[in-house]
Amino acid sequence: MLAYIVRRVWQMVPTLFGVMLLLFVLFNWVGGDPSYILAGKNLSAEALAGIRQQLGLDLPLPQQFLIFVRQVLTLDFGTSWSTQQPVSALLHSRIGPSLLLTGSMLLLGTVLAIAIAALVAYRRGSLTDRLVTLIATCAMSVSALVYIIAGQYWLAFKGGWFPIMGWSDSTLDNLLHYLPLPLLLGVIVGLAPDIRFYRSCFVEELGHDYVRTARAKGLSEPVIMLKHVLRNAMIPVVTSLMMSLPYLMMGAMLLETFFGIPGMGKEVVMAVERSDFPVIKAITIYIALATMLFNLLTDIVYKLIDPRVQLH
């Protein structure tokens, strides 16, 4: 196991290098000259040259790449071009609200989706099953924007049960006041496709021979479902779950924008709007790192669930 982890981490080095190279090439070819953007209206030759020198853009490309490599290795991406804050401090302050929102969404959504999916899979073919499938299909066909706007209008503005938007510095305040509505809407949007996917995982497992053996042993249906089937059905469920983990860091762009939550999602939108290259670079590298780490974690979790998995 340890040998496997060490080997996998070692394999990440060339992958990360590839990501860096790609990112560097893209920014230099496609991104255009950032000094034009930064110079804004006072576009003079001296101003441009000054900005270039300040950003290190006058240096030869290999040297610029080396600077980028050093930034990645020290995880210090300099200062944001638009706010002049250090990038690391900026992201540090943004990751908290995002994780709070997306983490609780994921936890609540997964538990709910698995519970409902297990129930309808057990009663497959029944009215409940058909009804849930029908509702899920309809719910999937409606845009997430509709849920957000309708939720803000009916539940917050008309109903007055939640604040329409906002965020505070106190975590407790956030948990009690500002989080519930975006959390609720986020869970509802994600629930329908999850239920349908998890249901199919359960139904497939229910057709296997070991379920017949479990029944022939005299086990009751809830035990068969929650002990024998659940653990086998978790294998595809974990796959889809782990794939979504790196995006936790990205935050929920729409929810954060609509509810004024100062998270990563909002920051990404703003950074792209302002061509804030250091911030975009940092986020891209962080996402790449997270994807690789979560992939490794997925494989290890597989091994824990399914003893047949061999880590090579």
Binding site: D209, Y210, T213, P307, R308
Partner: peptide
């Protein structure tokens, strides 16, 4: 296939 693969 008659034995559950994930339990000893």
């Amino acid at each position: 296939s008659s034995l559950n693969p994930v339990f000893s």
